[in-house]
Amino acid sequence: MAIATRQPNDPPHGQIGFSKPSVDAAASFRTILNAVARPGSPQTVAAKTLAAAPLSLAATTALLTLADADAPVWLTPDVRSDATDHLIRFCVGAAPVSHSGQAAFVCGRFGAIEALELPAGSPDYPDRSATLIIETDGFAAEPDALALKLSGPGVDGVALLHVAGFGSAFARFLQQNAAQFPLGVDLLLTHGDQVVGLPRSTKVEVG
């Protein structure tokens, strides 16, 4: 069970967590729902918590909103810290898992995630699959950002998404994921206070 402790002698990351769990989680969920329902369109999470460094505010918010004792989290080693440990163990109350294959949420940088074994669901239960929360370097249309053309459910025609920080391996990963539909993993890309949904139903072309 999650216990929001606010002891005066707590480390500074005592400010991680929702101060009004019910309404903060409700607002954050709507932002994430919008992101997943409209793939490729960056949505902004409201600052209801301190970010658990090195995770972004958006990734921190997503974990606070969605993970708990029934939905365990796997953090890739590169994003583990005292702050994220505090987030997962005290704020989220998620059960520790010994490998990524048991996790409902896998969170970290793409480089550390792509090699992992990830639950992709079964034909009977395609929903029993992981959701990846992947930290990026932003969604601005910079020249060196990966430009993706998205189509499929949630996209009116074709949407253009720029993702900074990843190369074509990421695009291939997305394409392979979409090709397995209805199996597959679902992605939330995060940066700062922005979150972008890329569910398995989204078809991806490098644009």
Binding site: P21, S22, V23, A25, A26, F29, I32, L33, V36, A37, T65, L66, A67, D68, D70, A71, A104, Y125, P126, D127, S129, T131, P153, G154, F181, P182, D186, P199, R200, S201
Partner: peptide, 28 residues
Amino acid sequence: FAYLDENTKRMIRRAILKAVAIPGYQTP
């Protein structure tokens, strides 16, 4: 808020996100 406890709402929210990701599939 909205009657359900937070654990229950999180469980339902996770199911909604999977449902949106797999259009038309009935998520338990």
